[in-house]
Design a protein around this nucleic acid. Sequence first.
RNA 1: GGAUCCGUUGCCCAGCCAGGAUAAGGCACCGGACUUCUAAUCCGGUGAUCGCAGGUUCGAAUCCUGCCGGAUCCGCCA
Length: 628
Amino acid sequence: MDYQLEIASLISDLTSIPIDRLQFLIKEPTKGVDTDYSINWFALKSHIKKDGNQIADELEQNLQKITGKHHFIHTVSRVGPYINFKLNDHHVFQELRNQIDTQFNKFVHSGFPDLKKLTVVIEYPAQNTNKPLHLGHVRNMILGQTLASLHIFAGNSVHQVNLMNDKGVHICKSMLAYKRWGKGTTPEKRNMKSDHFVGKYYVTYGKHELKLREEVANEIKQLDEEKKKPLKEQDSEKIHRLDIVIQQSKYGKLIQNLNDLLLKWENGDPDVRKIWNKMNSWAKNGFEETYKVFDIQHEKVYLESDIYDKGREIVLDGVQKEHFIQLEDGAIIARFNKKGLPKEKVLLRRDGTTLYITQDLYLANQKLKDYNFDESIYVIGNEQDMQLRILFELLAILGFTGNNVHYSYGMINLKSGKMKSREGTVVDADNVVHDIKALSLEEVKNRYKDLSESEMSYRARVIAMAALRFFILKYEYSRDFVFDLEESISFEGETGVYLLYVYARICSIFTKGLEQGIPVPYSPNEDKMNDWTHESIPEEISTPEHNLLILLSKYPITLSTTCTTLKPHILCRYLLELAQSFNNFYHECPILKEEGTLRDFRLSICELVRKVMKHGLQIIKIDVITEM
RNA sequence: GGAUCCGUUGCCCAGCCAGGAUAAGGCACCGGACUUCUAAUCCGGUGAUCGCAGGUUCGAAUCCUGCCGGAUCCGCCA
């Protein structure tokens, strides 16, 4: 039961203030105030033309009449400008108790409004095939995957797809370096993960280019400055001279080689295609290994090399329909007249070749054809906000049906600054997983000396992935954050490990209970629900118990909010609060040492927390373990 | 220069959409709790001009305006 909504409903009946307005006015109290929900009657004044005090008096009196021993509101009281509501523990517990057996699925969905089920396409992480995945991709993958999970939970039909950027100048850079310095070696011969092998050559190229560029840095700078001047003031002779110097430098020749390679690829040169195929398959095989670690599965992968040239017809058709404009030199552009958008955007080059945006137009249509979606989500970093705005605007101009959403997440920066893959200053996805696993294995070994190797590494793996996933998801997705392996991946405090620990603790209580012949709701070893029909509740409920009950009752609405806002951090914050609240309860309230109703009541609370914790973690794709 | 986002304690981070009680957590630091259901834990403490200045309001971290500081974007690149 959503008590916040119920209270809003009660007040709505008494005041005829619309309930959808009232539910935002019912607040959870700040720390230290002994109440469960409250409303400030000042906030009601703008809705009823009465004296505030009078409103509060009437409300309080009327509410007093209906609340009481059997009502879900136990007490109503006035403190200053607030009307406070304390819920009835018995009522809350009885409501929750139903889910211990068979109603759990109904319970977790009970916060959802009855909406039409949607078909949703989620595209991520759209990486390039020139280098291995890095921490930015990790955030992308984990967010994309979690979005899918949230939509599936909400009952929507989800299609997870990827766009593999497997052609273009970036992969040519790796190819060029490999051709020049690779000497035909392979990842196997070098004993390297194959995508790292490809990435090595990308970095080699980047460093080489940077070195050569320095030789003509001065000329490039001068050229840039000259070109920045208004057209009339430009010294065309100087520009020409600088151009020649740059072109004839080693740097210029390298760039020329790169462009030649790209052109050869476009023309289908067999030798170039052969090496391209080889390097791409190395890259893709490497990605597959990493995907396995993160359990990433795509229903379909669109390849840029397949579709880069498509979308031309859409653009030409757009010209026919006078949406776009063909310039004298042959280029096709779109003009915008909207704040925040550029004046114009080129859609086809003057030589008729396509651009990335051309392909985007095609892919948006193709996804609609393939899935007839209601919503298409692009999980892409916020540095591409403008590109996506332009794309969506173009689609709108073309009368595109279907809702496009840019899930714009923030960048991960390092203490040392921004991650730059061409300079090799990135946190590699595989390495970061490896490091966290090593860290958690050490912790497991410290605690258990006599576990089997496989059990130890299993636990270490679950713990490590929990730590990493939760670390990414606990931040509001749109915000940038700074990553530092030492400080960021901790197993203490607000971490995934903290949540796992609560789960393991509860399991441990149940295991101990079973050993002592005490009936418990759940058997961790067999992963089995027991016959558990406990219904009674002690006369006196302690504060930790009360807090847990209230918190548990908020789970459905938390899930619903998380799903409708697509903000996983809301669920993460809830689970942390639940874990804190449980740990407080754990230390304050003995369980197995008690007897009768009190023991059973507390065991029931444990089971509720266990179930909600497991469910919540499942939603964010974190596995649990029963012992740690 | 223009556009978008951001600025909350020594550090990290929630709250802002929908204004209301003493600004919530975590890290670090200080003190306390393991012969008692797992101390990867708990309890207590120190620590905040919510970037600055105005405005609206009975009331502003939250809304509005201006300023300062930071990030990103503004390619016939991807």
